[in-house]
Design a protein around this nucleic acid. Structure first.
Lengths: 90, 90
DNA sequence: CATATAATTAACAATTAAGTTAAATGTTAA
DNA sequence: TTAACATTTAACTTAATTGTTAATTATATG
C-alpha cells in the first residue's frame, strides 16, 4: 500500500503508542481509548489511519471491535530503511 | 533527538527522495533543487527539517552548502522498528 | 565597492491533520 | 421493539504543513 501511507501513519505519537499497546496482544477500541486522554472519536480516527496503512487489522466480535498489530508492513519499512542505509537488501 | 522528529521528517515524499539522492554522495542545495519541480525555498525548508531531525548534515564551502546523509538516526529508527516487531533488541 | 550567485528566511495562501461534540450505525439483551 | 452500549462518521475548529514570491544573508569576483 505504499511507504507514504505507512510513514504518515507512524508520524503521529498517539498512533505509535497504539501500536506499542497492541504489541502485547489485541485490544478493543474502547480499551485503547481508555489509555489515552482523548475522545473515542479521535482514537477511532487514528485506528482508521493505522488500518488504511495496513499496520493493524480489525475483527468485530459482537459489539466489540478488536484490533491487532500487523507486522508485515513493518517488515517492508525495515527493508526500505536498510536500502537507504546502503545495506544489501537482495 | 527523538523518534517524533525523525518520523515527521520521513513522512514527506520529497524529503524521502532527497535522502535517496544523498545516498550516492553529497550534493549542494542547488543541485538538489534542480531535481525537483518546486522552488529553491521549498527545498531549503525541507533540508532544514531533515537537518533538525539529524538525518542530514551540512557543510558550507564558499557559496555552496553541501548536504550529506547521516545514517546514525536511521540506525535508531531500525531499532525502534525491531522493538515493535518484537525482535530482541538487547 | 558593486554586482552576481547560492541559499535561507519572511510573509502569505491553500491544504491537510487532529481534536471536539453530536449524530448515526451495529449489536446485545430486556 | 426499545434501551443500552461500542464504535464510527459527520460537521466544525484550530493548528501545522507545504508551497509561492519577495526580501535577506553570505560569499566570490570584476
Amino acid at each position: 500500500m505504499g511507504i507514504q501511507r505507512t510513514m504518515k501513519a507512524l508520524a503521529d505519537p498517539t498512533r505509535r503508542e497504539i501500536l506499542h499497546l497492541l504489541k502485547s496482544g489485541r485490544l478493543a477500541a474502547g480499551e485503547i481509548t481508555e489509555r489515552f486522554p482523548v475522545s473515542a472519536a479521535a482514537i477511532s480516527r487514528h485506528l482508521s489511519v493505522l488500518k488504511e496503512a495496513d499496520l493493524i487489522r480489525d475483527t468485530r466480535e459482537g459489539k466489540y471491535i478488536y484490533y491487532d498489530l500487523n507486522t508485515s508492513v513493518l517488515e517492508e519499512l525495515t527493508l526500505w530503511l536498510a536500502e537507504l542505509k546502503g545495506e544489501s537488501v537482495t
